[in-house]
Amino acid sequence: MDGITLVMIAIIVLSNAAGDVLITRGMKKMGEVNSFHPYHLLQLGRKVLGNGDFLSGVFCLAISFFAFISVLAWAEMSFIVPATSVVYVVTVLGAKFFLKEQIDKLRWAGPFLVCMGVVLVCLP
């Protein structure tokens, strides 16, 4: 794996994490969706487009998307998709250091397994 691929994975992961946080915050303000009637979905769509959190989240995800399809141009999908799962490790570290959440021992096992998995995926 070369340096450019590594930098691209970092861009995919960081912008994806930022996008997910912003969109989750935005959607929680929308209320539960119980109707799939086109009219109600349209109403939801209109509400969502006026939501700043949601829009900046979409922008972050767009950056992540273009970085992702760029890497797909040269790298194998069965490598790049699992490799981007380090996003879960970033999320847990963010929760620990920025949100000061308590993370018990069993919860640390998650990021640890993800790291081990990514190492295995990166091996030739």
């Binding site: 999908m77 081990m116 998995g117």
Partner: peptide, 24 residues
Amino acid sequence: LGESVSETRWAGTLLICLGVILVS
């Protein structure tokens, strides 16, 4: 896509799934 997936890569993918389940 005809990608040849090594046993190590399969194992890595499984570990990642388990890890994600534990994280959340």
